[in-house]
Amino acid sequence: MSDVRLTIDGKEVTASRGMTLLDAAQSVGIAIPTLCHHPQLEPYGGCRICTVEAEQGGVTRLVASCIYQVAPGLVVRTRTEKVNRIRKVLLEEMLAHAPESEILLNLAQDYAADKDRFEKEPSFCIHCGLCVRYCAELKQKHAVGFIDRGAQREIHFIPEIAGQECWDCKECFPLCPTSALQAAYVLTEALLTPAKKPSCCS
């Protein structure tokens, strides 16, 4: 694979073609925050917290570094005022839903985000889609999915599949950056098999 030379935060970086800006930055020790990214899953570009500025031919664009691929001569800036501002607002928007999420609270400190800027609507889920994509792409079970759209979008376990697959798996639980996933599963479990008690509790 041919090499591509680009600049990230003033550093000359050599990356292989097809690599994302996120991976290229990480390869030289530049950290870009991510929430919906998972090295084993297809890039998603949903949370947008990894947004960076990418300049080519005099045109600067804001792009999601987890998806955008390296290109020769690209000048990438990961911590400009604009980028910081966007990350701050995104964190504030997500903290309205998941005010206790440790990952979000830590990032909020880095970006001076006010966790109480917006009225709390604790749905807990920040729609990173890690559970949905992990279950679909790696486990190929599709036991959890998104329903509805826009502001009404939610994650839901599909009872028919979850009832058979999830109890022995639960590999998605530790992926969740908030506590939403477990709660959603427990709810599904309870609705699906009200009589059945987990064996560990008997």
Partner: peptide, 10 residues
Amino acid sequence: QDESCGKCTP
């Protein structure tokens, strides 16, 4: 708000 797909945060 209704017609956004809801995938991305911003």
